[in-house]
Design a protein around this nucleic acid. Structure first.
Lengths: 168, 168
DNA sequence: CTAAACTTTCAATAATTACTGAAAATTCAA
DNA sequence: TTGAATTTTCAGTAATTATTGAAAGTTTAG
């Protein structure tokens, strides 16, 4: 496969993966493009490469900034903004984990803890099954949460080293 | 909060979490309902509880069967099918991990490996940046994949025990 | 067999989510 | 200041995804 085909396929694949995991396809494609760019890209260049409108490019770039996966870079003597992606994959994984934890896991955690205290006749099957499940889920989410905290304060080789040391 | 409110909120919350992670909201809601049900539910009961159509209920139940999160249960002397969810959260986590690995990670892994071998002038910045990124991503996905394998062959207390032993 | 009970399919439609493009807002060089 | 360059917003539209409901298919009791 040649470079141009490879590039196209990577952008497609990354976009598809994103959308399967609840991330806007175009945002993932902009991310893919920046991941393989050897230099900062302008909004114009992104629009051009992905054949998308200015508004769309702008919104998805802003979102990527919000996820801390991309940052602005100013070129002296140029009014335009340029964008660069974080290139270290472990750092990328951490930033995605940090945001998903903050935006999606923490709120669920808080709801589950509230739901552990519903009032109701505990002799009823329904209520018993409910509170049992809330306790189980609450405990699980807490452990997941702590695991993410550990990952966030680790470096890649230590983290995987520990985890993979245990292969049978 | 009383039981009925709690139930409603759990179904809502689980549905929202699902949709944020790329899973059909209704499928997640059916799952939530079955998670807290003290006994097998029929399609009728699911339609009723969630106010959804028969077709919708049927399709989402089939999907849950495909994820191995729910199984059929036959009641002797009754033509209807009843459905029960796996209730052990670690088992649930494993089954979700297994399916996402199979459906979404493995295909990406295979593409990334192909993309590590694009042909092109390696002295060009573009090509160098591309292959470097593909190598990094390929390595990372391999390690993730192995980590999931370990998780899939572990029990909950061992897995979290190992991971959480290391909190500072 | 037959027909009632039940499940599945799928074309039509609804709901949701994403995108466009042009106007408004902002920035900054002169 | 001014106005050209650039970014942002957002109403309208397009594309995607999910849902309905009725017809077709399947199963089983009698």
């Amino acid at each position: 496969m040649n470079f141009e085909e490879g590039k196209k396929q990577f952008i497609q694949t990354w976009g598809k993966l994103g959308s399967e995991w609840g991330i806007n396809r175009t945002m993932a494609q902009v991310h893919a493009l920046l991941l393989i760019a050897p230099k900062p890209l302008s909004t114009e260049e992104i629009m051009e490469e992905l054949s998308i409108s200015r508004g769309n490019a702008n919104m998805n770039i802003r979102d990527l900034l919000g996820w801390n996966l991309v940052h602005k870079e100013l070129v002296p003597g140029d009014r335009k903004e340029y964008f660069v992606a974080e290139k270290d994959i472990w750092e990328i994984a951490k930033r995605i984990s940090r945001e998903r934890k903050r935006r999606e896991i923490e709120p669920v955690k808080s709801v589950l803890h509230q739901l552990q205290e519903v009032e109701g006749d505990r002799s009823k099957d329904e209520v018993k099954a409910f509170t049992d499940m809330m306790n189980q889920l609450g405990g699980f989410v807490d452990k997941m949460d702590k695991s993410v905290d550990i990952m966030l304060s680790s470096d890649q080789s230590w983290f995987f080293g520990m985890l993979l040391k245990l292969i049978k």
